[in-house]
């Protein structure tokens, strides 16, 4: 196994609840119970679970956007890319300007890297387009290109395709697999879709709510991740396995 890209040791998150009116001391809401997780460098890990299971909180703590209440998050050296649930583009900026933002913030000229990243997500020729001129799927591609532009070692994705239609989602899934193979990223992909998780990831981490915790860690063995694999027996079997674990945990 490769070196770890991310290591979580006893990481937990408690959000303070509203001030108690009755005078009983409140300990707050536990979004995530103490959790250990190691993600190998170069692997594609999906995190699935129902809403409220702490999967987004876990991802935000890996990104460093939310500090853990207890425990440590260790991340290997290298840039991090983050893709949000919505495209999160600046409406006043073109696709190219949006894509170049991470570089611009570090004072690096992105006039070459940004068009290249856009071309890699199939958006060559749309550099000058504004977000409202693009479809939902294309906006998401710009968002992925922006996450790629710094050549990250680690790509964190928070239900990035949840708002898209199924056809677009399948296409983006296929593209994501291809990009992952090309670039050797470590990908942590949060989703609530079992099928999406099984199709994309080598390893599916299943989480459960109240309190948020990891209930299963399943290695997915799919010989083939081409679009045709979605109809294969192996794929349906793996989905059934993860599904059974999820239902057992609920």
């Amino acid at each position: 196994m490769n070196a770890a890209a991310v290591t979580l040791r006893g990481v937990a998150k408690t959000f303070p609840s509203a001030p108690p009116s009755s005078g009983t001391p409140s300990s707050g809401t536990t979004a995530l119970a103490p959790t250990d997780l190691t993600i190998a460098s170069g692997s594609f890990v999906a995190i699935v679970g129902p809403s409220g299971c702490g999967k987004s909180t876990l991802l935000r703590m890996i990104a460093g956007l939310t500090p853990p209440s207890t425990g440590h998050v260790e991340r290997a050296e290298g840039a991090v890319g983050f893709v949000f649930q919505s495209p999160t583009l600046m409406p006043w900026a073109t696709a190219q300007e949006n894509c170049a933002l991470p570089l611009a913030l570090s004072g690096i000229d992105g006039s070459l890297a940004a068009p290249e990243a856009l071309a890699r997500v199939g958006l060559a020729g749309f550099e000058g387009a504004y977000p409202h001129e693009l479809s939902g799927g294309m906006q998401m591609r710009v968002s992925i290109a922006r996450a790629m532009v710094t050549s990250p070692r680690l790509l964190l994705m928070d239900e990035p395709f949840a708002a898209l239609d199924e056809l677009t989602r399948f296409r983006l899934n296929d593209d994501l697999i291809a990009l992952w193979k090309q670039n050797g990223w470590t990908v942590v992909f949060v989703t609530h879709s079992i099928r999406e998780a099984v199709f994309l990831a080598e390893r599916v981490v299943v989480m459960s709510p109240r309190p948020g915790r990891i209930v299963a860690d399943i290695a997915v063995d799919l010989p083939d991740r081409s679009p045709a694999a979605r109809l294969s027996h192996a794929f349906t079997d793996q989905c059934a396995r993860v599904s059974a674990v999820l239902e057992g945990a609920a």
Partner: peptide, 17 residues
């Protein structure tokens, strides 16, 4: 936009930026 603010934070933007 909250997510855009997070994005700026993630890429280490200064207050002025």
């Amino acid at each position: 936009d909250r997510n855009l603010k997070d994005l700026f934070r993630l890429y280490g933007a200064s207050r002025a930026q």
